[in-house]
Design a protein around this nucleic acid. Structure first.
Lengths: 134, 134
DNA sequence: TCTTGAACCTCTAGTCGCTAGAGGAATTAT
DNA sequence: ATAATTCCTCTAGCGACTAGAGGTTCAAGA
């Protein structure tokens, strides 16, 4: 049996976060000591590891809740959640790339060196210079 | 002079958001009517447009506050903020790309078609299959 | 066995950037 | 004059935590 601190150390999830996860129904301690402290089994440790990894992958707690509640035989649904998230991530990458291009344009509006005329603030404020709409 | 609704319509920033920006010190109404309603000048409109654009670019309200508080002659600092944000965005893109690769691996762990053995849940839970650390 | 100190407990409130709703007052159009 | 619309302030909620107060339990050493 692991204490909450040991679980935290083993998974890299902070102690208050573990308690938070309990509060929102993602994990439960297998037991409590007489003095009311949480004790976890190895299965609990693995479950938290799973949550941690899925979080690192950017899944919301809601998505993770759906994932851990799945019938392990229900591959189709699991696949669905993962694919939805994948296209989500791809959309975010595309958006960030557009921002990157525009920021680059803005920064370059000032790359004439010191003393050179710089319209970076104007570039920040001016939508018309963008080649796409927000 | 524009009412808050007109300002909202012109910039695409929602009315409660404009009031929120006022609450956190980003904008102010130039006047109030006798009945206490906000009235904005054209300068106010442009300022909000600037904020909107910078927000769309992903800058935090703190960064924007720094930007609008700048001495317009202080190009170096403006440049700095923009460049910091640019490298920020690049880091986020790089991270998302790693996630994309891993999610793809996970989804493909199940691409044998129906009836095929699928270890997608295991793949989600197992850090050891990653070729990078989170 | 006792004592110390670290780790634990619950609870509340704060973070960011909004958004939603209540309940009421002002403005505008007919 | 009336009705419709917009406006006002205020409070509370979202997700996913994080920080702190104030108090209790546990484990290890003397």
């Amino acid at each position: 049996m692991y204490s909450i601190g040991e679980l935290s150390h083993a998974t890299g999830v902070k102690v208050p976060t573990i308690r938070y996860y309990e509060g929102v129904g993602l994990i439960e301690a297998d037991e409590r000591t007489e003095g009311n402290q949480r004790r976890y089994s190895r299965a609990g440790l693995e479950r938290l590891g799973f949550i941690r990894h899925a979080r690192d992958l950017g899944l919301s707690l809601d998505a993770i809740r759906a994932l851990v509640a799945l019938d392990p035989a229900n591959h189709a649904e699991t696949h669905d959640i993962a694919e939805t998230h994948l296209s989500d991530i791809r959309a975010r990458i595309a958006r960030l790339r557009r921002l990157e291009a525009e920021l680059l344009r803005i920064v370059e509006a000032c790359d004439g060196g010191p003393g050179h005329d710089c319209n970076i603030l104007e570039a920040f404020g001016d939508h018309r210079q963008c080649d796409h709409e927000h």
